[in-house]
Amino acid sequence: MLEIRNLVVDIEDKRILNGLDLTVNTGEVAAIMGPNGSGKSTLSYVIAGKEDYTVVDGEILLDGESILELEPFERAAKGVFLAFQYPLEIPGVGTMTFLKAALNAQRKARGEAELTTPDLMRRVKAAATKLAIDPEMLKRPLNVGFSGGEKKRMEILQMALLEPSLCILDETDSGLDIDALKIVADGVNALRAPDRSSLVITHYQRLLDYIVPDTVHVMANGRVVRSGGKELAIELEANGYADYRQQAA
């Protein structure tokens, strides 16, 4: 379970999050919606531990424990996974090599045995097939020369392999055509589990047609200003964010 209390975050003296409260229960899929500049991506980076941000006040608790003092890789080992809006290219590092390094680093941190190469290959191939990822892609350097859609699918592949307890999807729908969107949504839906929470950050309601959320939270001016069920997303689609911008101002 993720609990965020009164989170205040600055980047270079500019306030981005301003007393944000949010709770995502275990097994729940929560959607975060909001206009551009409302602090949605900052929220995802701060949960994952990116160092450019200064947490001025507040608390982030994962299963009751504060994670604010933890390094990003320690948070990852505790089950935090961020699917990036713009996944990074890692030249020279084979995709399979990267997957193995990441998976084994997390397993080791949790005191589990490292995976053998055949075991890893089996898992990767199974997950890749589900996401319609060409096996040739696994031989190439991670994300180098991948199309926008391929990069997003690679993010979901990593999410499936790492089996996180908290999945954060930052604008995963951006840059996807409708077929790719369906594949990615199917991948995310397949990972729904009673012991896993998800935070789906999106600007558009479109993604939520395919990943149906349990709760919807609207962000404006660095705060959650309204929470509700999935019908809230539909209302936003009809009325836009204009009301919230005004409210924020």
Partner: peptide
Amino acid sequence: FYCLQRGLSSEEAVALIVNGF
């Protein structure tokens, strides 16, 4: 940050990237 988010420590991430290079 991308590598760290996937669970690699700074040293592991640099070693991985440099070895690839």
